[in-house]
Design a protein around this nucleic acid. Structure first.
Length: 310
DNA sequence: GTCAA
DNA sequence: AGCGATGCGCG
DNA sequence: TTGACCGCGCATCGCT
């Protein structure tokens, strides 16, 4: 549920470049509705953030994968003038700014945001005055707008992890809980909490499921902003490791890994790793009994959760 | 916007 | 009621 | 120069 991104983190020598690239990314996604440019800008920001040397020129940046002619020139312009004309223009475009703002509400995407602005609804305040025009999802989005943009300290997640495990243990001691996401990757704070809940028995009766859902819901209400995904389907043993891999992320890591899987003739999702036949039709899932198994099958060097922060 | 076919 | 298309979100 | 750019679930909406 976290909409925030930050390749412009800690010891990043190129964070100023990353900042304007991320801003351009947001613009392309939210206003231009071009998700591919959005991803291109984010990839460029990511590669610059990882780069251990301060970039001194556009030409130098261009050597990095993901940076081409246009971004190279933008870097030159930024180095010379300290800003980008393109970005300055965007700042002055009030509708574009309004669309960007509305998009920060979960449940409001580029299309809905543009429609709101067209109808004169241009701020969070305006949204709150028009609750009747919102879906259930968007209503929650405005209600907790400020909360959702806050980061959650690791310590706080540890507390919640303890409470969650206690509650679920009382429900049925055979449940296991794993907090995935950036928490599992060792981050000091996270945008949300991803809890993967499994049960050793293949069958979970319906009543228990509902009871569990209720429990989760009350927990969410009580803690304001705890977001959970519950996976409980037949082949759990089998799916579990693909799920934990997926929920641990990061998103860039997942994309990279899935792309690599395709190279090696497999398709990977959160449920299974399957070979892809010459016809392009995925075959039967491969038996997986650990996270490492997935890496092995697609011939990808194993990375610990902490090494998946990409 | 970038890369590769 | 049932369907597919679209929008939005998750990692 | 042109096409691809992960993979999928859920809510919503319009059409039949």
């Amino acid at each position: 549920m976290s909409k925030r991104k930050n390749p412009s983190d800690d010891n990043n020598l190129n964070s100023d470049f990353c900042d304007f690239l991320m801003e351009l990314a947001e613009y392309e996604k939210n206003v231009s509705r071009n998700v591919h440019k959005y991803n291109a800008y984010r990839k460029a920001a990511s590669v610059l953030a990882t780069h251990s040397k301060r970039i001194e020129s556009g030409d130098e940046a261009k050597k990095l994968s993901g940076i081409g002619d246009k971004i190279s020139k933008k870097i030159d312009e930024f180095l010379q003038t300290g800003k980008l004309r393109k970005l300055e223009n965007i700042h002055q475009d009030e509708d574009a700014q309004a669309i960007n703002t509305l998009t920060r509400v979960t449940g409001v995407g580029p299309v809905k945001a543009a429609e709101f602005v067209r109808n004169g609804i241009k701020s969070i305040e305006d949204l709150r005055n028009n609750i009747d025009k919102l879906t259930h999802h968007q209503t929650i989005g405005v209600r907790y707008f400020e909360d959702f943009e806050k980061k959650i300290p690791r310590k706080e997640i540890q507390d919640i992890e303890g409470k969650l495990k206690n509650l679920i243990k009382n429900l049925d001691p055979e449940f296991t809980v794993t907090i995935c996401g950036s928490y599992r990757r060792g981050k000091r704070e996270s945008g949300d909490i991803d809890a993967l809940v499994t049960h050793p028995s293949l069958k979970i009766n319906e009543k228990k499921k509902k009871h569990e859902a209720k429990l989760m819901k009350s927990l969410v209400d009580a803690l304001k902003g705890l977001v959970t995904d519950v996976i409980s389907i037949g082949d759990t043993k089998f799916m579990y490791y693909c799920a934990i891999l997926y929920f641990t992320g990061s998103d860039v890591f997942n994309k990279t890994m899935r792309a690599h899987a395709l190279d090696k003739g497999f398709t990977l999702n959160e449920y299974a790793l399957r070979p892809v036949g010459v016809t392009g039709v995925p075959g039967e899932p491969v038996q997986i009994s650990s996270e490492e198994d997935v890496f092995d099958y697609i011939d990808y060097p194993y990375k610990t959760p902490e090494e998946r922060n990409m």
